[in-house]
Nucleic acid binder design. Structure first.
Length: 160
DNA sequence: TCTGTTATTGCGC
DNA sequence: GCGCAATAACAGA
């Protein structure tokens, strides 16, 4: 299969993407400290800049049947943009143990696409790898986009 | 196989 | 608040 690699900026971090153009499938996303910028799928850069709420038409390799933790990744991928769920809720939805959800999130091959940053602890934020600040930034980004959207929606309804 | 690893939770003090 | 035990599922040896 033909795998492409690209890097784009996100705050202090860089996002490294490995994907297959023909299969519309993202194989891996990782966060790195440095690296030269190179092209990534437009869906990714649009999401990171708050211009898109999904990665359409790209999907994640982790959502193929038979992939380890498939049920967990599926449940996580169904969390709506800007919302959060606790580890327990994901565990219940996927019929597994909350401790196992933590393991699955830690091993998530494609963060962002499997929106593991939307899974938080009951008592706080929970964790994130490699750095919790990425999780905060992503949640802030989504909240900001939703606020902007609801503002413009209100403005539109005022005109009616 | 067996051991190590893990981004949690809930209970007791 | 803090410490600790419970506990699922995969990776690596």
């Amino acid at each position: 299969m033909d795998i492409s690699t690209g890097i784009c900026r996100f705050g202090l971090w860089r996002v490294r993407v490995e994907w297959s153009e023909e299969a519309h499938l993202i194989h891996r996303i990782s966060f790195v400290r440095s690296g030269d910028d190179s092209p990534v799928p437009q869906a990714v850069s649009r999401y990171l800049s708050g211009k898109a709420e999904s990665f359409d038409p790209y999907g994640s390799i982790a959502l193929s049947r038979g992939y380890p933790f498939y049920d967990i990744y599926k449940a996580v991928s169904e969390i709506p943009y800007g919302e959060v769920r606790t580890y327990s809720e994901i565990a219940e939805a996927s019929g597994t143990h909350h401790r196992t959800v933590g393991v699955a999130m830690r091993r998530n091959p494609t963060p962002l696409i499997i929106p593991c940053h939307r899974v938080v602890s009951k008592t706080g934020l929970g964790g994130y790898s490699p750095d919790i600040s990425i999780k905060k930034d992503l949640l802030n980004l989504e909240k900001k986009v939703l606020r902007k959207k609801s503002r413009s929606a209100n403005a539109a309804s005022d005109e009616e």
